[in-house]
Design a protein around this nucleic acid. Sequence first.
DNA 1: CCACATTTGTCCGTATGTATC
DNA 2: AGATACATACGGACAAATGTG
Lengths: 79, 79
Amino acid sequence: MPITADYIRIADEIVADIRAGRFAPGAKLPSITQLAATHKVSPSTVKQVYVRLEALRVIRRHQGKGVFVNDPKLWMREP
Amino acid sequence: MPITADYIRIADEIVADIRAGRFAPGAKLPSITQLAATHKVSPSTVKQVYVRLEALRVIRRHQGKGVFVNDPKLWMREP
DNA sequence: CCACATTTGTCCGTATGTATC
DNA sequence: AGATACATACGGACAAATGTG
């Protein structure tokens, strides 16, 4: 049974949170520092989470402002 | 005109290479060390390239073997 | 306008582990 | 056994954008 990497697990949790409505489209996600603290990982790891979610178009990163949830219509898809 | 980050520029070049047929589906991409050398960036930056391309499903990373091109049908799309 | 704190952006270097050849 | 290659995580350094006072 493979253990999932932190940066993928955390990314998946954020996607699940969005799908569950715990983060609305346009909402600001926790800062890198905060997320690192709550998940007990380094800021570098959280940055990688956000790089991944940005590639998936789940979020937009905005330097100096924060990280924001994209409209799910932009990224939701089957499979 | 904003300058693009290395890890995005390199990722885009690889996608362009695939679209142009310079890398066929299933082909093995250059190793991280090689790609870092030819682009004059650090291995860390190339890893970030591959994390991004994996999220976009352009490639599969296979520990100990290499990085391979996915079938474009898996990831090509109109935005 | 300026100073400051906060936040993300990018890149680098290192350490350790695991898989493959 | 040894070499090669990717996997993950961490830490640091500096830049750039933003907001506040």
